[in-house]
Simulated scan of single mutants.
Amino acid sequence: MGLFSGMIGNASQRDNDKVERQLEDILIPDEQVNLAFVLVRDLIVFTDYRLILVDKQGVTGKKTSYKSLPYRSISRFTVETSGHLDLDAELKIWISSAAEPAEVLQFNSDHNVVEIQQALAEAVLR
Rank of each mutant, 00 (worst) to 15 (best):
L120H: 00
S97D: 11
V33L: 11
N34T: 06
Y66A: 00
V59T: 14
L51E: 05
G9Q: 02
D55Q: 13
G9I: 06
V40H: 00
A11G: 12
N108F: 07
V54G: 02
M1P: 08
E103K: 04
R72K: 15
K56C: 05
R72P: 01
L120W: 08
E122V: 11
E100Y: 02
V40A: 03
T78K: 12
S65V: 11
I44Y: 02
D88A: 02
E80D: 12
H111V: 12
R14F: 04
R126V: 04
D110L: 04
G6D: 04
N112H: 14
F4M: 15
L105V: 13
Y71L: 04
I116E: 06
D55R: 15
I26N: 08
I52S: 05
D48S: 15
L85T: 14
I74M: 04
D30C: 04
P101H: 06
E115Y: 06
K18L: 13
S82A: 15
H111A: 13
N10H: 14
L23P: 05
A123Y: 04
R50W: 02
R50Y: 02
I26T: 14
V19L: 06
D88W: 08
E115K: 15
I93A: 01
L51R: 04
T81D: 01
K67N: 11
I52V: 15
Q106P: 01
H111P: 00
V54R: 04
I26Y: 07
S12I: 09
G61M: 10
S109T: 06
A89M: 01
K63P: 00
E90V: 13
P70M: 09
A121N: 12
V54Y: 05
L85V: 15
G61F: 08
Y66S: 03
I116S: 10
T64V: 15
F107C: 05
R21N: 14
D110A: 05
A98R: 11
E90Q: 12
S82I: 01
V124L: 01
Q32A: 11
I8F: 09
G58C: 09
F4E: 08
S109D: 13
L51H: 10
K63Y: 10
H84S: 14
K67W: 03
V113Y: 03
L27N: 10
I8G: 03
V19I: 15
S82Y: 04
L69Y: 13
I44C: 10
G58H: 07
A102C: 09
R76V: 00
E115P: 00
V59L: 15
S75I: 06
